[in-house]
């Protein structure tokens, strides 16, 4: 580190449940490299200044989804955001709308439950035997759901969503997008089952189309599109089931 090097101050939210009643802020002034991402600065602080700082990270190539945090108030993958776009003081906080376990680490188990609830797997009336070989799927059919399969579960969308902030039952953008992804997959036969989930409490119809999830998605999944497409599908499914069940009962 040479003397003329640029410095930045990182104001980081700290919280140790063993010692702190509530989260507090701690500032670190460090020399920064022009090529650094925000994550590099956090790792520098952890290695060189304060080993008690806790944060999650792994792949540092924006695909594992571990390192989401609020950077200057916006949910970001810290391994993806270049430092040079920020000012001399950078505020780093844990993802909004999540309980905080420690420092920059949030409680992710709630998300895992929501993800499971949408049945994000291929559902078929009759399971295929492996001997039958791969199913056919045209590039066009693949295109119909491909975008929604790009979700890395980084949960940034949950941090941006005003409905998530106020309605704990809301399954939320990423989980709905993944459920919808499977319903759109030509190999899947479980759309009706998932639509039943989507018609329940705190699901697609809770969404008020703020579109914030899509604004902050680092992988351009556009969860808002998925959620609102799922609304239409769930409604159509509900209407047809109404008509069919009436017809059947006569």
């Amino acid at each position: 580190m040479s003397d003329g090097q640029q410095k930045k101050t990182f104001v980081i939210t700290r919280f140790d449940p063993d010692r702190d009643d509530a989260p507090r802020k701690q500032a670190y002034e460090i020399p920064v490299h022009p090529d650094w991402k925000v994550l590099d600065a956090l790792n520098f602080i952890k290695d060189e200044i304060d080993a008690t700082l806790s944060h999650r990270w792994s792949c540092r190539m924006a695909v594992c989804g571990s390192c989401g945090m609020m950077v200057d108030g916006e949910p970001r993958l810290t391994c993806k955001e270049a430092l040079d776009q920020y000012g001399d003081t950078v505020d780093v906080a844990p993802l909004a709308n999540f309980p905080v376990v420690r420092d920059l680490v949030i409680e992710a188990d709630g998300f895992m439950e929501k993800l499971t609830s949408v049945k994000p797997w291929i559902i078929r009336a009759k399971e295929l035997a492996v001997e039958e070989g791969p199913m056919r799927q045209s590039p066009g059919e693949l295109e119909e759901f491909k975008q929604f399969s790009m979700c890395i579960n980084c949960m940034l969308c949950y941090s941006a969503c005003p409905v998530v902030a106020n309605e704990p039952e809301f399954i939320g953008p990423a989980a709905i997008a993944l459920g919808h992804r499977y319903s759109l997959d030509s190999r899947d036969e479980g759309a009706a089952e998932r639509n039943e989930v989507f018609r329940g409490e705190g699901t697609v119809f809770s969404c008020s189309f703020a579109n914030e999830c899509s604004e902050v998605c680092p992988k351009h999944v556009d969860p808002a599109a998925a959620v609102n497409q799922a609304k239409l599908n769930a409604a159509i499914d509900w209407a047809t089931s109404l008509v069919l069940s009436r017809g059947g009962s006569k």
């Binding site: 919280f15 449940p17 509530a22 989260p23 609020m70 108030g73 916006e74 949910p75 906080a93 844990p94 909004a96 709308n97 999540f98 309980p99 905080v100 376990v101 420690r102 949030i106 409680e107 188990d109 709630g110 998300f111 895992m112 439950e113 949950y158 941090s159 941006a160 005003p162 998530v164 902030a165 106020n166 704990p168 939320g172």
Partner: peptide
């Protein structure tokens, strides 16, 4: 907000709104 159905294994700090909301 975003809490699991069973309480977590350690005490957590409450979820915060995004600053700009």
């Amino acid at each position: 907000a975003m809490a699991p159905s069973k309480p977590g294994r350690t005490r957590t700090a409450p979820p915060q709104l995004p600053d700009r909301f």
